[in-house]
Design a protein around this nucleic acid. Structure first.
Length: 287
DNA sequence: CACCATGTTCCTTG
DNA sequence: CCAAGGAACATGGT
């Protein structure tokens, strides 16, 4: 469940639960997610360590721990990939089929599960060095955003997925932000007018902020049956109340009417990924 | 069987 | 070296 808003909501929920908890032992069930960190090294460093903080950078989770008898903090990088989840599970519950890493915290277990194993749980912090500004912080500056777009011949939609431009957008919120800004996804980045770039800059922030506030109002109850996976994205469960389907304006709505103008939403493929857009609200010819 | 899926990295091509 | 596109990764849903 992973773009910036989902990670942000997860971090807020998880942080108070982990604060001060001690790692008795850990189990690595799929070493691929360690991204090169030897399991033995992770075990040596984490055993007996205590969680002191959890924060987010882009779509990454940054865990901070204090190792036993060592003053310098230990940092761990987590990433949910496409299908990763992290939650506390009562110690007596059975582990999910795709549990990749399990930390024994005593009463309960911290579980990192990931069906497709694209996620990460590692001591290697280097991916953080390549990240652009946080969209909801003052580091995300309109003038720099505009200048960066001017340097690119790539279509704006795939450009928004480039985490060096700005972090946090994935395939869903990139379409959502362009729709909100009224900008065509196929427009070459350097061809955006100053007004379009400004609307897009504002739309990125608004879309992410709204998604966070929506997610924060919903209980992230991972305990129990795990029927809550579809929390953020797929609101079409037959029993879902209406507001579940109101969150996304264009994503995954191909062939259905635009909520603004009634035109049929279209789907196209750019750089191998689906883009959804309204041909009227996001005409390539409007400014 | 076919195609699709919230992400990142590596490789190739230009 | 840079930019952009495609494949790979692995599993499951429709």
């Amino acid at each position: 469940m992973p773009e910036l808003p989902e990670v942000e909501v997860l971090v807020r929920k998880l942080n108070p639960l982990l604060q001060g908890r001690c790692v008795c032992r850990l189990q690595v069930r799929r070493s691929k997610v360690l991204a090169g960190t030897p399991a033995s090294q992770l075990k040596r460093k984490l055993a007996g360590a205590r969680f002191t903080g959890l924060s987010r950078r882009g779509k990454y989770l940054v865990f901070t721990l204090r190792a036993r008898g060592s003053p310098q903090p230990l940092k761990l990088l987590g990433h949910l990939g496409m299908t990763g989840r992290m939650y506390l599970l009562p110690a007596r519950e059975p582990l999910p089929r795709h549990a990749a890493v399990v930390l024994d915290l005593g009463r309960d277990l911290f579980v990192f599960e990931d069906t497709r194993y694209f996620g990460r749980f590692t001591l290697d912090l280097r991916p953080l060095e390549r990240l652009g500004p946080e969209p909801l912080s003052a580091d995300f500056r309109l003038d720099e955003f505009q200048r960066a777009l001017k340097r690119s011949r790539q279509a704006i939609k795939p450009k928004l997925l480039d985490q060096r431009l700005v972090v946090g957008l994935g395939n869903i919120y990139a379409s959502e932000a362009l729709f909100r800004a009224g900008v065509s996804p196929t427009l070459m980045a350097r061809r955006l007018t100053a007004a379009q770039a400004r609307r897009l800059w504002l739309a990125i922030r608004a879309v992410l902020r709204h998604a966070i506030s929506w997610g924060s109002t919903v209980p992230l109850n991972y305990l129990g049956q795990g029927k809550h996976d579809k929390l953020f994205y797929f609101g079409r469960a037959p029993d879902a109340p209406d507001f579940y389907t109101e969150r996304l304006r264009v994503y995954d709505r191909a062939g259905r009417p635009c909520r603004n103008c009634g035109s049929l939403i279209r789907r196209l493929v750019q750089a191998g990924r689906s883009t959804y857009w309204c041909p009227r609200c996001q005409s390539p010819r409007q400014t």
